[in-house]
C-alpha cells in the first residue's frame, strides 16, 4: 500500500478528479436541451482532454513528489482539516446562537489550534475582534447580521 502511494503523483490525483468532474458535467448535460448543453459540453470535453494530458504527463515526470508526501503531510494536516470542518459547523450554528457567540468561540478555538499558549490573549483578541465587527457592520453599516442580541431584545 505504501509503495502504491509512493508511486502515485499529485498530478494523477488532481487530473483524475478533474476528469471525473468533466464526466459528471457531460452526464448532467445529456438531459438538457440541445442549445442549452452546447457550451457546457464543449467546456467539459476540453477539460477532459487537458486533464488526460496532465495524467499522461505525470507518468513521464520523474522529479515530482509522491502524493502522500506532497498532499497529505505538507498541505492537508489533521488540524487544518479540523479547522475546515469547524468552519462548516460555523455556518450551521450561526443562525442559532448568533454571530457574537459563534465568532467568539470560533476565533478562540482556531487560535488555540494554531498556538496552545497565550490563553488570555486569545480570549481578549477574540472578544475585541467580535465586538468591533458587530459594531462596524451591524451598527455602523446597518448590515443585517444574525445577532443573538437582536433576537434576545427582539430588535
Amino acid at each position: 500500500m505504501n509503495k502504491l502511494l509512493k508511486n502515485i503523483k499529485p498530478d494523477m490525483i488532481s487530473g483524475g478528479l478533474i476528469l471525473s468532474f468533466s464526466l459528471f458535467i457531460i452526464l448532467q448535460s445529456i438531459e438538457l436541451r440541445a442549445d442549452a448543453r452546447l457550451i457546457p459540453l464543449i467546456t467539459a470535453l476540453l477539460i477532459m482532454v487537458f486533464s488526460v494530458t496532465i495524467i499522461i504527463g505525470s507518468f513521464k515526470s520523474k522529479n515530482s513528489e509522491s502524493f502522500s508526501v506532497a498532499i497529505l503531510k505538507k498541505n492537508m494536516d489533521k488540524p487544518l482539516l479540523f479547522i475546515i470542518l469547524l468552519t462548516l459547523l460555523y455556518v450551521f450554528i450561526l443562525p442559532i446562537i448568533g454571530f457574537e457567540i459563534t465568532s467568539f468561540c470560533y476565533l478562540i478555538i482556531v487560535m488555540a489550534i494554531i498556538e496552545r499558549e497565550l490563553f488570555w490573549s486569545r480570549v481578549l483578541i477574540s472578544g475585541i475582534v467580535t465586538l468591533t465587527l458587530v459594531f462596524i457592520f451591524s451598527f455602523g453599516l446597518n448590515l443585517r447580521i444574525p445577532l443573538l442580541f437582536s433576537k434576545f431584545f427582539n430588535i
Binding site: 468552519t87 487560535m111 494554531i114 465587527l133 457592520f137 447580521i145
Partner: peptide, 14 residues
C-alpha cells in the same frame, strides 16, 4: 498570523 488568519476567515465569511 496566528491572530490574523482566524480573523481573516471570520471577515471573509461575513
Amino acid at each position: 498570523v496566528k491572530f490574523l488568519a482566524p480573523v481573516m476567515i471570520v471577515i471573509t465569511l461575513l
